[in-house]
Write a protein that binds this DNA or RNA. Structure first.
Length: 476
RNA sequence: GUCCCCAUCGUCUAGCUGGUUAGGACACCGGCCUUUCAAGCCGGCAACACGGGUUCGAGUCCCGUUGGGGAUACCA
């Protein structure tokens, strides 16, 4: 395969869509795998939605995922002149013709055709009229070959195509002189020397018309590869209302780019039994042959598993850097890089599916005021725990060193002194006193991370809480 | 309506040219570990949509049915 050139052609919608991201990834991977070029082209012909900001958001999403491009970003709007020239050329060659049908008459005739059980394609009203440029408001239509298959071999779906009669002479230029999608795409792809068009399967049905355009322009079509659409976990079409479809939102929810990339690459592509694919693996292994043909559901559980996998793999410095913004959001203030924080990060990476979850699990470290969970308090901070808590507090206050070993010694001594108590009898009340909840990393590790001062203060506070509550209870 | 496409565990999938106890991963369930929650380890549940063919033999090939998706714009 010589001179592979792929492209990603998003319309700037203000965010990078999950499905688009996968298309971009496949294009990028294919180009990288074959030592080709990956080109970015913004399809901004819809001027309404196309702002600089929404364009930047799409680029930002690509950068975050780690998908670098070799050329561009180009903007389709920059090629307007060229598009017009091509239409003129087609007109001069009689491969296209002007159509003066009004929208109303078009709609009427289409409806009549459908009612009669037909396809509702353009009926060729102006096809042989040979209308000149002075025919009033008009569009330009491509003159399709009268019959014959507009076929192509799709790299994913295999032999594809439709008979020209099933398609009809579609419009390639609006009455205001602007080009339509099909024309713009084909011309731009030709000009950019695109060798492989890898795009969503929603384009599969309108590829035959584009084949006709390539034929009219006497250019060999590129290889097409239509990748099946991804659908929501519900089994329905991905909807921006119901589903999370924005890459940026996944980022905000605490997912790592590596996890997201791994997740989407496996949605419709596989490599034997392997599940873990970093960008480097993908650029080495990706192939069109192993892309499936059926739509894949995007199940979040798999993403979460992958995310935890990658969180566990991160180096401490990377983890710190990635987790920090989320930690600071919970802390509502800057979070200092300390040995305790690093230790906590290591403890929490085993228990977090996302960085957001990790930050939530760290709330007792990040905030001065802890939130007591009602159930946990009710179960563990009861009168019967007072003896244990007081004994532990006393011994902790005298501790000459604040380490896991020393704390473990204290706990064992107290357990033995109070009648060979089970460790749970001591650990759980302390855990609730110190974190507010009934789950956390190992109790000694938790206390070391929290520090002596805060530990003692919180246990004291919990003891007071129990005493005050029980006093009220006996008053009744 | 009309055209086109798709169809293996709940989910993502393996399954190369027909011969497998239909494999893996996630999820789920159980066990071990254990001061809690996780993680880890071990084990389990679970699929060829249905009906016809072709064949000695079909998840693999053909047809139909059903189900799902897409396309039918002077959107992209």
């Amino acid at each position: 395969m010589t001179d592979v050139r792929t492209r990603f052609a998003p319309s700037p919608t203000g965010y990078l869509h999950l499905g688009s991201a996968r298309t971009a990834l496949y294009n990028w991977a294919f180009a990288r795998r074959h030592g080709g070029k990956f080109i970015l082209r913004i399809e901004d012909t819809d001027r309404e939605r196309s702002t600089r900001e929404s364009e930047e958001a799409v680029l930002e999403g690509l950068r975050w995922l780690g998908l670098d491009w070799d050329e561009g970003p180009f903007r389709q709007s920059e090629n307007a002149q060229r598009h017009r020239e091509v239409v003129e050329q087609l007109l001069a060659q009689n491969k296209a013709y002007r159509c003066a049908c009004t929208r109303e008459s078009l709609e009427l005739r289409k409806q009549a055709s459908v009612d009669a059980g037909g396809r509702g394609v353009y009926d060729g009203h102006c096809r042989e009229l040979d209308l000149g440029p002075d025919c009033g408001p008009h569009t330009v239509r491509l003159r399709l070959p009268p019959d014959g298959m507009l076929g192509f071999r799709d790299a994913v779906f295999g032999p594809s195509g439709q008979d020209a009669s099933q398609i009809g002479d579609a419009i390639i230029q609006r009455s205001d002189g602007s080009p339509l999608f099909h024309l713009a795409v084909v011309v731009d792809d030709i000009d950019m020397g695109i060798s492989h068009v890898i795009r969503g399967a929603d384009h599969h049905p309108n590829t035959p018309f584009q084949i006709a355009l390539y034929q009219a322009l006497e250019v060999e079509p590129p290889t097409f590869a239509h990748i099946p659409l991804t659908i929501a976990e519900s089994g329905k079409k991905l909807s921006k209302r119901r589903d999370n479809v924005s890459i940026q939102q996944f980022q905000e929810e605490g997912y790592l780019a590596a996890a997201l990339v791994n997740w989407i690459v496996r949605l419709g592509w596989s490599h034997g039994d392997e599940e873990i694919f970093a960008l480097d693996d993908i650029r080495r292994l990706f192939d069109l042959e192993s892309v499936g043909r059926s739509a894949a559901r995007a199940e979040i559980a798999k993403l979460q598993w992958l995310d935890q996998h990658y969180i566990k793999q991160l180096s401490m410095n990377e983890l710190l850097q990635q987790a920090r913004p989320h930690f600071e959001r919970v802390a509502e203030r800057p979070v200092e890089d300390t040995p305790e924080l690093r230790k906590l990060l290591d403890l929490l990476r085993e228990r977090s599916k996302t960085l957001v979850e990790m930050a939530e699990l760290a709330h007792w470290y990040l905030r001065d005021e802890i939130e007591y969970q009602e159930k946990a308090v009710k179960k563990h901070l009861r009168g019967s725990a007072l003896t244990v808590m007081r004994a532990l507090l006393e011994r902790m206050s005298e501790a000459e060193e604040w380490s896991e070993e020393v704390l473990e010694g204290i706990f064992h001594d107290v357990a033995a002194a109070l009648g060979d108590l089970k460790m749970g009898k001591l650990a759980q009340p302390i855990r609730v006193a110190v974190t507010g909840g009934h789950s956390s990393p190992g109790i000694f590790e938790t206390l070391v991370v929290l520090g002596e001062k805060r530990t003692i203060q919180r246990i004291g506070q919990a003891i007071e809480l129990i005493e005050r509550r029980d006093a009220v209870a006996t008053d009744d």
